[in-house]
Amino acid sequence: MPSLKSYRVRISSVKSTQKITKAMQMVAASKLKRAQEAAERARPYARRMASVIANLAAGVSGQDAPRLLAGTGSDQVHLLVVATAERGLCGGFNAQIARLAREEIARLEATGRTVKVLTVGKKGRDILKRVHASRLVGHIDLSEVRTVDSSIAHRIGEEVRAMFDAGGFDVCTLIYSRFRSAIQQIPTAQQIVPAVAPAADAAAAPDLRGALYTYEPNESVILEALLPKYVDGQIFSAMLENQAGFFGAQMGAMDNATRNAGDLIKKLTLQMNRKRQAMITTELTEIIAGAESV
């Protein structure tokens, strides 16, 4: 049985840990709030872009369509862009995304397709390089990124487009976590190349009151210019969801850790007190026995 001192040392150490996890939980909570606000602020652009792309894509068809929209005509080679966080201490957040990636790889390869993987964020790469190192074709380092902004999404978009233009793949799917709530993050696979135009929903299209759009210079050129921005926008939205999901998951993980530490402190305190009482009882017994013998 450990000594009283070692109990006290252990309890003190767990208390310090508990302070840290509690602080991390509060920091994660405030960062989650900011991340959610950032996602909210990004919505006007995303909505408008989707509406314009839907409008333009409906007017341009088949072979005239830009390659980013029409595709290569084949779906043999797939690129999976797996977006995870740089850091851990977030429960199963990164592992869940990596698991979906592994399932997608297995599913695609079972049908004879070739799969390449581009990792965004260290954790995904660390998990996937264990079994799928041969499929990793690139990595985007997020360690320098303080907050997610459109420039990092643009960087990823440029890399994906460069690979596409060089004939590196036919279909590109983004794998990330959708933010349902602070306690629910849902790993999602979303195709970004060929671009999937939102359905030209009559309700979403602006009411032109009988007039027709004038396009300068013409619909095709505008669509060609906007498609890369649309893809970047989808990547940006996914990164924002991931950011919010990460902090939500970290909040939950740190909350659990704080609670576990509390339980451990209670258990250790109980054990220490029992030991202390046993020692007092022993001492009393000795004193009484000694007194009696006199």
Partner: peptide, 10 residues
């Protein structure tokens, strides 16, 4: 200006 016809341009 107000009342401009529907228009899209890069």
């Amino acid at each position: 200006l107000p009342g401009h016809a529907p228009f899209m341009a890069v």
